[in-house]
Amino acid sequence: MVNLTMNGLEIAFEKGASLLEAARFFGIEIPTLCYNEGLNPYGACRLCLVEVGAPGRSRLVSSCTYPVQPGLIVRTHSARVLKARRLLLELYLATCPSSKIIQDLASKHHVTRVRFKQKNEECILCGLCTRYCAEQMHGHAIGMVGRGAERRIGSAFNKKSEDCRLCGGCSYICPACQARCQGPDEKSAVCGACLNLAPPCLDDHDDAMCYLDPCAACEMRGER
């Protein structure tokens, strides 16, 4: 077991585990796009970044690839972390606004504008599909091709791979493939279109617990 401090709490966690696993075990919510429990951590989306180190000398690291270390001081929701996460989400919105998962994360983190040039990519290069294909299916049918701005997901020589078993896992696991709802303004970078519609609930849930997260009605009443 390794002893470390997370958000001011002394915790002990299994050696060899990542900070993300430790945080999730203790109920601390950290958003991710490229992480999946069944696959090796990749550290591509950077959304899971946390601040490690003593105050004043801290740095941002991706928690999914950072192992728990004795005496480590970790802050998962400091102002610096939240600011960086919001910026990342803004960049993701500019890259791939058609994804429901990205839109949901953005509205959850109160990202309401996009200051970057709008692109409409279909892929955020999170590598989930390639890892799923290689690690879970042992298929190695698809992978990263090219470099830098030309990097993309593809198959060898742009031909359909003989190793592909058409399992469909790549599109199942893809965070960009699930389309967002086509609200009044489907071309806009930030979805949030439902905020302009009539709220689904207002006063009739006194004691009942609402599981909508984010909830348009609460958002409109400014309760969040």
Partner: peptide
């Protein structure tokens, strides 16, 4: 896997396909 070889071959500019 072929895709791994292809990935490396497309990554480096000095390799030509």
């Amino acid at each position: 896997p072929l895709i791994e070889i292809y990935r490396v071959a497309t990554f480096y500019k000095s390799f030509s396909l």
